[in-house]
Design a protein around this nucleic acid. Structure first.
Lengths: 243, 243
DNA sequence: TTCATGGACTGATCGACATCAGCTTTGCTG
DNA sequence: CAGCAAAGCTGATGTCGATCAGTCCATGAA
């Protein structure tokens, strides 16, 4: 069985060395596989008693709508990420979740997860670690919107995707597939789509990065890192931190 | 003993009805009381093996610095809030923490906390709840910076403080003490101090809110809620959600 | 083929907020 | 109470990014 190739196992494995027992416990969480089509909300604000999921394939976005019609995308989830954990704790969702692409996800029964926590503390550590990392990413996103200009912000965001996708084997040093439209990118970055377009052109003309036809090509990694003040360490490690 | 008057107990009590056992467990976490003076960093980026704290009195801010000299304040902590929990999990802090005022805080030994989790599941639920709420606030903050203009953003932020402080008995319907300078507010809201000043004047002239001499007076609560699109439900409850 | 739709892309114009430079008030300390 | 630093406050000017108003190009349906 290909347990250790699930995106989540792969990601957690870089944080914490997982035993066979941990891996099979992870596998047990992946029972109820479900599919969703792009564009149809999976969860929306105010909905109660939602389940949590682990993303197996495809991209998803979490966003909030404002009464003036604007929307802010808070985060994108990629394979290996948890979905809607906070909504479960809160009992009522405070944001919407929409698949960007077609999506496969495993429904997580919350008692299964708590079971897993009690029986495999190593796994629990890894999951908490991943959750902290997710929160750190939201914080970094906030900092970017608050204090970085459009160019730095965009560069930083796209670098971050590279790092996240590499953890689950969906990116190389030179680039990754990215199903986002410029509109979505705009709603994530707090910009207008028009301006995102100009910024992407600028990044391309500066020879740093090419965002085209659903694919991001990193043309000059070091240049991007310098421009965006990207902290290489914070998302990516050489091996498990906890042996 | 005045256990149930600690800000944390008071806050958690509005989420989950706590037993005497829960309360005395909470009390045990409050052993090592420490003090800090305003303006001197308590934690800074990159520092490792930091401890966590529970804030007993005073205000604290968590922020990040960018190489261009800008800073973004991610969150303020008020009495009853946890401090630096993520840094503990991550082993190395990804942000700075600075007391805004003189501060009293209890150092939390992480094993004590895990003990408390194992022995008093109700308390554990409450703490997780509080942590989710903190995360929800950061998300709301991100949405504000990304998609609300300066006026709405400021109004929303100051309303949120009112709601948070009310939970620990430090605010009334009509206002609260707020030790923040306009500079700090600016760094939290992603604005310049000059603009914050103008926005505060505008709020005052609109008869909505007065921010002066360390005190915020809510002049027209409903007006503010309408302007800021503030969700009254999300921070404030009439009684424990979990009986 | 024609039409419709949605994303990418561009120029012109406008406005919200930043920056700069200076003044005033407050509160602290010698 | 004089002197000073820090915060509050304000006008003038500049700029980044929004908005408006399109064109161009794919894809897919009729």
């Amino acid at each position: 069985m290909m347990i250790e190739n699930s995106p989540l196992a792969r990601k957690l494995g870089t944080f914490v060395a997982l035993s066979d027992e941990d891996l099979s416990m992870l596998d047990r969480l992946h029972q109820r596989r479900r599919c969703f089509v792009a564009g149809v909300d999976l969860v929306h604000q105010g909905q109660t008693n939602q389940s949590a999921y682990i993303l197996a394939s495809g991209w998803v976005c979490s966003y909030k709508l404002l009464p003036n019609g604007a929307r802010q995308i808070v985060d994108f989830q990629i394979p290996g990420d948890f979905l809607g954990l906070r909504s479960v704790l809160f009992r009522t969702a405070d944001h919407n979740i929409e698949p960007v692409t077609q999506v496969e996800a495993s429904e997580v029964i919350i008692t299964d997860l708590l079971d897993a926590f009690a029986n495999t503390p190593r796994l629990a550590t890894a999951v908490l670690w991943a959750a902290s990392r997710d929160e750190a990413m939201v914080v970094e996103h906030l900092v970017g919107i608050g204090r970085r200009n459009a160019l730095e912000r965009t560069a930083h965001y796209l670098l971050e995707f590279g790092a996240r996708l590499k953890l689950v084997g969906l990116a190389t040093k030179t680039g990754y597939d990215c199903p986002l439209s410029q509109y979505m990118l705009a709603d994530a970055l707090g910009l207008s789509a028009v301006h995102v377009n100009r910024v992407l052109r600028q990044l391309r003309e500066m020879g740093l990065l090419t965002f085209q036809k659903g694919h991001v090509t990193i043309d000059d990694f070091d240049g991007l890192v310098a421009l965006a003040d990207f902290d290489k360490a914070y998302l990516d490690h050489d091996g498990p931190l906890l042996k």
